[in-house]
């Protein structure tokens, strides 16, 4: 009895392989996969980019005033006060002023109009951080 069952299982297994192989090579399937389709782009439309001019550089930082602006991101205060201290140690002829941006409603992305006006009037260069 056991031998008959084994033979039947083997026969079914071989039939399965044969049928599977036939389906895999079926001309209908092959033709379908070779058919050319045209599809649409799924992308939205990006805008054109208008260039902005970079400000000319300074010849030297000697006797110049650099505003080091803290935008309020956590850790910026330590980083930028240490940066101001570096200028004092290494380039004492450069005046480096640490300034904390006051932009109560805008967070670190906000614009501090008063500070911006002060920079325009008094700064020769600006360092701003932190982009995290």
């Amino acid at each position: 009895m056991k031998r008959y069952i084994t033979a039947a299982v083997m026969a079914l297994f071989c039939l399965g392989i044969f049928c599977g192989f036939s389906a895999f090579n079926s001309p209908v399937q092959a033709a379908s996969s070779e058919e050319k389709l045209t599809v649409l782009t799924p992308l939205g439309s990006p805008p054109s980019i208008k260039p902005k001019a970079m400000a000319p550089r300074l010849d030297t930082l000697e006797d110049k005033t650099i505003y080091i602006v803290d935008n309020g991101y956590p850790g910026s205060d330590l980083l930028l006060t240490e940066m101001a201290a570096w200028f004092e140690r290494e380039m004492p002829e450069t005046k480096a002023l640490y300034k904390r941006k006051q932009a109560a409603m805008g967070g670190f992305e906000g614009i501090d109009e008063a500070l911006w006006a002060e920079i325009k009037e008094k700064a020769d260069a600006v360092i701003i951080g932190l982009g995290h």
Partner: peptide
């Protein structure tokens, strides 16, 4: 925002401004 602690001044550096109120 918990990360906006009062900035600590650098030794001999310019004193930082007071802590702003963040949204």
């Amino acid at each position: 925002f918990p990360g906006f602690a009062k900035p600590k001044p650098a030794e001999g550096g310019d004193a930082p401004a007071p802590k702003p109120k963040m949204p």
